[in-house]
């Protein structure tokens, strides 16, 4: 593990160094909110940001991605053969990602990178990316990362963690990828004992602020069918308007839909994010829809994150506590509240 201290006035130069080596993505302010974008200039990265409005899953799993192209022109010798659409897998650094969001990629790996199914594009993008995180000194009021097993200083999903200690950043690598990155950097100084202490203090303070807001440990003990048939769903689902905000903003919602689009003689196979909140998500070709009711869809989203996933992988919940769905749900459906109901020891049957 290597570490270094980068003074704030030298930070742009450090970023510039990185930009000379590979593509660098950072939090960029776009009018109303921050989003990750490839940096054109080192100064574009706003490291004082809270968090991006949209989760950075877009960087690995674009909302719309051309998978294949094909020709339907009979005179073309390669007609009707799917060809992989060209993509850029050159190495890149994502700078300033929050620990929760980085952790989310590890959860998503369970879907995109397992022995039986390896999504080539997800895997290649993951391999070519180094994640340089930024610790959360001041977590949002609606964040709950510590409750779901990650944290404002969690290094689990990261290669390097930066901590803003006032005049500069303490950078610590947490993986061999991170080691490689830091070792190649010039301009870093030795981390003073004061700075190291500051990191500790900030970590404790931030974690304390977040606290534990509900108990996830009891979820695995609950009877699945009892939860499924619980009466509280009716209460929770009432206000839901079935938009896709929670799923589209969520860093751990990975569902997608594949569509073929043909224009003239050319066709594209495109992968788009999909949302279990949409009735179309489960609509069968026959016209039957197993989740035709709003209640079923709302329940599915929470059951998936807080029960099915828990039971299947036995490694906590499929939520990293970034709080985006809490902040942007137009009708204030709060996953923390739902989790409290679900994890309560006594579940009353309907």
């Amino acid at each position: 593990m290597s570490e270094m201290y980068i003074a704030k006035e030298k930070f742009p130069a450090t970023v510039k160094q990185l930009m000379g080596r590979c593509r660098v993505y950072g939090p960029v302010f776009r009018g109303q909110y921050h989003e990750f974008a490839e940096l054109k200039a080192a100064e574009d990265a706003d490291m004082g940001y809270q968090n991006t409005r949209l989760s950075p899953k877009e960087l690995f799993h674009p909302q719309s991605e051309r998978m294949f192209t094909y020709s339907l022109d009979k005179s073309d010798s390669e007609a009707e053969i799917l060809k992989e659409a060209p993509k850029d897998f050159s190495s890149r650094v994502i700078l300033g990602i929050r620990p929760c969001d980085a952790k989310a990629f590890q959860l998503d790996d369970r879907n995109f990178d397992v022995d039986r199914f390896r999504d080539p594009w997800w895997v290649k993008r993951r391999e070519s990316t180094t994640l340089v995180g930024l610790a959360c000194n001041q977590p949002c009021a609606s964040c709950f990362c510590t409750t779901v097993g990650t944290g404002p200083f969690d290094t689990g999903g990261l290669d390097v963690l930066l901590t803003d200690v006032g005049n500069g950043y303490v950078a610590r690598s947490t993986s061999s990828k991170g080691d490689d990155l830091l070792q190649g950097m010039e301009g870093g100084e030795k981390v003073s004992s004061e700075a190291a202490q500051k990191v500790m203090d900030l970590k404790i303070k931030a974690e304390k602020q977040l606290g534990v807001q509900f108990d996830v440990s009891t979820l695995s003990e609950q009877q699945m069918l009892e939860l499924f048939n619980a009466s509280f769903w009716d209460d929770i689902q009432f206000s839901c308007i079935n938009c896709g905000i929670c799923t589209f903003l969520c860093p751990t919602c990975w569902c997608f839909d594949i569509q073929d689009e043909v224009h003239g003689n050319k066709g594209d196979r495109i992968r788009n994010w999909d949302s279990c909140m949409f009735p179309l998500f489960t609509l069968h070709g026959s016209g039957h829809n197993p989740r035709s009711q709003k209640l079923q869809r709302v329940r599915q989203r929470f059951m998936h994150k807080l029960k099915y996933y828990v039971d299947k992988y036995k490694d906590g919940v499929a939520c990293v506590g970034c709080g985006r769905c809490v902040r942007f749900c137009p009708v204030n459906i709060d996953i923390r509240q739902v989790a409290r109901l679900m994890s309560a020891r006594c579940v009353c049957p309907a």
Partner: peptide, 8 residues
């Protein structure tokens, strides 16, 4: 006009 899907 949509000549092809303009996506990544």
């Amino acid at each position: 006009i949509k000549r092809e899907a303009e996506v990544a």
